[in-house]
Simulated scan of single mutants.
Amino acid sequence: MATPYHVQSPRSILLKMIATKQQPPALPPPPPPKLILQPRQRTSPAMWCAAIVCFAFSLLLIAAGAVILVVFLAVRPRAPSFDAAGATLNAVYVGSTSPAPYVNGDMTVAANVSNPNQKMDVVFRSAAVELFFGGRRMAAQALQAPFVQRRGQSQIISVHMVSSQVALPPELAVAMVNQVRSNRVVYTIRGTFKVQAKLWFWHYTYSMSALCDLELTAPPCGVLVARRCITRQHSS
């Protein structure tokens, strides 16, 4: 069976011809973009000199760091130690006045300061020792400085701590009286130091602190029966 043809009217054919004439002609594709190559600029001698100087400076820093590391590993610097070799409690008197009790005291501490380093000296630029009872400061004493500690050297320093009319809270005054009666008086010593380590032409400074808990018998001839000391190094 033959396929029937669709018969269009003359008007439809005319409208299609008019629409075809009204369409704009197809535009040609745009040309590809042209690459413009800039001429290569040559590096100036000043830039080369700056690069060489930066490279040399970097090598110098690396070499200095390696030398410092080798020296540190060879020397192994350590902070000095502070210890109470002995102590004598000469007097303790607790008085009562208004508005708060007070205490007078007299103690002598034989402080042992030692330099454990075998390849470097240390210099104590400043040194101070404070005496505490139950967290309340009783006395303070600055040590004569500066003084030098040679490598491996130990030194005994006598520190005289005098408490005069120091006000105490009532509970601390009662605790001190009870400790004197029980023949066991507990004090705390805190030391603060500024130390300079010296090795040939190289030196550096740091801070150091020491904390000692002391247990003594009652005055007038109180002697040291127990102690515990801790020394810490702090960066400046």
Rank of each mutant, 00 (worst) to 15 (best):
T3A: 10
Y5C: 11
H6C: 13
Q8P: 14
Q8F: 15
S9W: 08
S9R: 15
L14V: 08
K16H: 10
M17K: 11
K21F: 06
K21T: 13
Q23Y: 04
L27N: 13
P28F: 06
P29K: 11
P30S: 15
P32I: 01
P32C: 04
P33A: 09
I36V: 03
Q38H: 11
P39L: 10
R42P: 04
T43Q: 12
M47E: 15
W48M: 12
C49S: 15
I52Q: 08
I52F: 14
V53H: 00
V53G: 13
C54H: 08
F55G: 15
F57L: 15
L59W: 13
A63R: 12
A63I: 08
A64N: 07
V67F: 09
L69A: 15
F72W: 08
F72I: 04
F72E: 04
A74E: 05
V75Q: 01
R76G: 06
P77H: 00
R78G: 00
R78Y: 07
P80K: 03
S81D: 05
P99W: 10
P101Y: 05
D106F: 10
V113P: 00
S114W: 07
N115D: 12
Q118F: 06
M120N: 09
R125F: 04
S126F: 03
A127K: 01
A128H: 00
E130G: 00
L131K: 02
F132I: 02
G135Q: 10
R136P: 00
R137A: 02
Q141W: 02
A142V: 09
L143Y: 02
Q144I: 14
Q149Y: 02
Q149L: 15
I156M: 12
S158L: 10
M161K: 01
V162C: 04
V162G: 03
A167H: 12
A173T: 00
V177W: 01
V180A: 08
R181V: 04
Y187M: 14
Y187K: 13
T188A: 08
I189R: 01
I189T: 15
R190V: 03
F193T: 14
L199C: 04
H203R: 07
Y204G: 04
C212F: 09
L214Q: 07
L214E: 04
L214H: 09
T217P: 15
C221G: 05
V223G: 06
L224A: 06
L224K: 00
V225H: 01
T231W: 01
T231P: 06
R232K: 08
H234V: 00
